[in-house]
């Protein structure tokens, strides 16, 4: 695969240094170098490479994020069950330990690669790149990347995916978007999950949850669903179908908000 995906491109900053690391001034045995690049330059470089790779193989890549236990794997199981005949689906599973989630996915007859991160609280673009070597992208339409359950760290790392999906289960509290603004601001879709439990809860207001998302200047759809009730999954499946089409029609599809994307562009171009 490496011959076609260009893995031999040197990751890192030699190119950046040559282009932008210009000498500003020299005095007292020191020199000041203006850089203006992301702190995660190397990760972002690898992420762009992953994204090119997905695009070349006509694969839509989606990053699923949430706190632990909000139902990412259960949603994937229901989705695979319902859409397996329409889309060829593959899954990359991120967890600190165990193959449990990948085994659950494989039981539905689709390929799943487990990344165990050890102590790392998030996936990064290099881990996903390594996992891609174990997936035959030519035989897939959609790759779901199930990130480590964590509402903080995964928000900072571009993996090369096309859209961010954040799950918020109704047992967690409707103010989670206000408490974790970085992640929810960057979400292209917010799913309020476990809606079958809503009737037992008097403290989760789906409208309030949506208002907290809007207060982050985010116009992403907010859908309420339960992985256990297929009749609630229609809007989610429609969104998926629209994204598959959007990716086919646009080679440069990326998540709406990318970490420090606007700022870097603005500073870099001034």
């Amino acid at each position: 695969m490496c011959e076609t995906c260009g893995c031999t491109i040197t990751p890192g900053n030699a190119h950046l240094v040559a282009d932008q690391g210009r000498l500003s001034h020299t005095k007292d045995g020191t020199k000041s170098i203006e850089v203006l690049s992301s702190l995660l330059h190397e990760n972002n470089h690898m992420a762009a490479h992953n994204r090119e790779h997905f695009n070349r193989h006509n694969v839509l890549a989606l990053n699923l994020m949430s706190s632990p236990g909000s139902g990412k794997t259960a949603l994937l199981e229901s989705t695979i069950k319902a859409l397996k005949s329409r889309y060829r689906i593959g899954v990359i599973e991120g967890d600190l330990e165990t193959e449990n989630d990948a085994m659950r996915i494989r039981a539905h007859g689709v390929p799943a690669v487990q990344i165990t991160t050890g102590q790392a609280c998030h996936l990064d673009a290099h881990m996903v790149h390594d996992a891609l070597h174990e997936l035959d992208l030519d035989s897939l339409d959609i790759v779901f990347i199930e990130n480590v359950g964590n509402l903080v760290c995964p928000a900072s790392f571009d993996l090369g995916h096309h859209a961010n999906i954040t799950l918020l289960s109704v047992t967690e509290g409707d103010d989670k978007p206000a408490k974790y603004p970085v992640m929810f601001r960057g979400s292209d879709l917010v799913l309020l999950t476990k809606s079958d439990l809503l009737e037992f809860l008097d403290d989760f207001d789906t409208q309030k949850a949506e208002t907290h998302v809007r207060n982050l200047a985010n116009s992403a759809p907010v859908l309420t669903l339960s992985a256990r009730r297929e009749d609630t999954l229609g809007p989610w499946f429609n969104w998926l179908g629209e994204m598959v089409e959007a990716r086919q029609n646009a080679q440069n599809l990326t998540p709406t908000i990318q970490p420090d994307g606007i700022a870097l562009h603005r500073v870099g171009s001034s």
Binding site: K31, I33, V35, S38, A217, S219, A263
Partner: peptide
Amino acid sequence: NALLCGSCQSWKVDLISGDEMILKSLILT
């Protein structure tokens, strides 16, 4: 967690500063 217009309170705003994570410069010896 309240990215709202200070004038009309709309949430339809663009963030123009505040999400930076940038290596600006280095002073080398």
